[in-house]
Design a protein around this nucleic acid. Sequence first.
DNA 1: AGCACGCCGACT
DNA 2: GTCGGCGTGCTC
Length: 788
Amino acid sequence: MADLWQVTLVSPPYETWTYGLPSHFPPLSPGQRVIIPFGKSHRAGVVVGPAEAAPRGVEIKNMIWPLELSPLLDQDFVDMAVNLASRQMVHVGRILEIALPRGLRTAAVTFKVDRHMTERNLPATMRPPDIVRVKDRDRAALVDLWLEGRMRVRINAKKEAEERYVSLESDPPWAVRPNAKRQLRLLEHLMENGPQSLYSLRHTLGDWAPDVAVKLEGAGVVRLGELTADHMAEIDGAGQNGADDPGCEFALTDEQRTALDEMTETLESGGGAHLVHGVTGSGKTVLYMEMARLLLEQGRSVLFLAPEVALACQLYRTVARRFPHFRTIFYHGYQSPKKREASFRELAGGEDPVLVVGTRSAVFLPLPNLGMVVMDEEHDESFKQEDRLAYHAKEVAWFRTGRSKGLLLLGSATPDVKTFQAASAGRIRVSTLKERVGDARLPDVELVNIAELGSSKQLLSDRVREAVRETVKAGEQVIVMLNRRGYAPLMYCLDCGETVRCPDCEVGMTYHKGRERLVCHYCGRTYSYPLTCRKCGGVNFIPMGEGTERLEEALTDLLPEDAKVLRLDRDATRRQERLEEILGAFGRGEAQVLVGTQMISKGHHFPGVTLVVVADGDLGLNLPDYRSSERTFQLLVQVAGRAGRGEHPGRVLIQTRNPDHPIWKEILGGDYQGFFDREASRRNMFRYPPFSHMALVRISFPADYDNGPAALSLMGEVLREQGRALGISVLGPAPAPLSMLRGRKRFNCLLKSDDWGKVRGLYAAMARANPDPRKVRTGLDLDPLSTL
DNA sequence: AGCACGCCGACT
DNA sequence: GTCGGCGTGCTC
């Protein structure tokens, strides 16, 4: 028998199976990609190691062909995947699926061989099934050709077609038949979620989606293709008007010099995590660059991670300008798969130190001799992937820098409470920057009590209205943030007092006036408006509460005729070019007021803005989630930073109904330490993270699966009983916020423990008790961002 | 994820 | 009578 290898499938069912290596091939190495026969078809897999013996009762098949001459991934990369998989309690293949760009996971490839092989009646191009049919005597020659590098692999063009993005070409109402349910479904989906690749559409909506998209393209309603130049400009250019690399032109301050010494010390004492806690504008970027220079001199690579594309782009420009003679690579999820694949291959094949800047997914890139990972704005929630498989880039970066004795540099003005706790407890080192570089000044932040406004129709107080009017009159600009899109979050039926709720999610549906629809912000379900009340058949609804759309209307009424108000939220930027249009117009001063959701809080830099209004500062505070204060603190400190970035001093007004809440003093004074102390003691008292280990267990089954509820209660019982024995507190199972998704009923269970190992043990016990794993799916989210 | 098997509706 | 829709099951 040929020698046996363990091969991990990088697509469902993600399992690791045993395959034989055909004769004539030299031994394989872990990290080598191969094409394997799988059932009636073939798949791509990754060799994770040699197999000791064949499993009993199965007939071992031979692999078809390797996908590259030398392993794409090294042992460290495989170890990382294995380690992460065991921590997340998933198959290794699921980690590899996330880590590899799509082109490196597909088995839809064609092998092209040098022409002279055709003399042996072999075709010049072969697909995997053709290779299986090659006669033994030709096979040896083919292997020789492969080893000489005269047989190449090319990804099939048909697969690439699935990578095209679908985006809306026109606004609703669309020119489609009103009973074309699938077409409307797809259009609404694009409306809610922005441009999507055909691949992800097929995944979220169903196999019909690509065909429907092509049909809609024919009708001219959607666009199909690469992301447009407009969209890339929007992504790449969003930071262009920003004051990037603050402080680069200054000599290092004493504070910065001290921080630099401290970071160097951490690096030289064997690496590990190091927090740079510095107020906005204190020159953290300069420190990143200085450390990067140090590492490059040692011949080590550096990875920079930013929470979103626009910020990553800004950082990339700084890096490229600072190190013009080094190889720099930019990597993010909106790039074409071709580009991502090329970057991945280039890195995997290289040995020289390289600088990479990217977003979350870049944490998996195979950097040669990794010396440092920088995570800018480390508190940002985008570093954690929540859908599909829950992983945090910080965890991956921690593992990788740990392996290579590198430095994990975490930078933020408002660090993650968990990170700061680790720093306070002395588990990671911290450098603090208290001063701003140059003579930039933090804006004045004031509270506006709106408690007495009650439920009257106006959300904006007289004081804020006056301030907005005055600012506009003075020729300056205003940003108003309301973290709630739509016109009104609730619609009341005047006849029976019922509110319109989503039948799947049971939450109130938000009225979107411009779209003439009611939208569920959880699942995206929409009803057209006007509509009739489900309970009493009435047709008279009144909108309650306020969203950005209504606020835009109110501000337009407030200001003189010639003043212009723009709105920036997910609805307004649904069509690709819109974001750039809006930001551009506001930046050029064509409008005086910009209303928006938290989208406006990040990265953009408008020198003309002297007033920032937070319309509802309490919005995030009252959520029943243990991280809501932290989120509010971080968001409001960020938003406040939008004011007074030009010559004129800035002013921030925050409206609240609870002016006595202690968080305001901390936000007004930019007092992170004060906030942290209070928050830490509260979390300690209630055993919330970081003083406990929290995990979310997700359980789902098809809505029409009769045994589902019984299976759920059985598994819930196992969790509670065995949880009690392990000292783990168990909450639930309770219906998830999105209780129905794609025909599946979803439930959550919250675990609180003193140990991750126990959590994994309990989850494993529950999974064993699953009566039908095919129907009842489970997932584990360690340290969830939200417990909702 | 693919691909086959298998069971019910609209057509040559 | 068949063609073909997608539910279900399996893959070293």
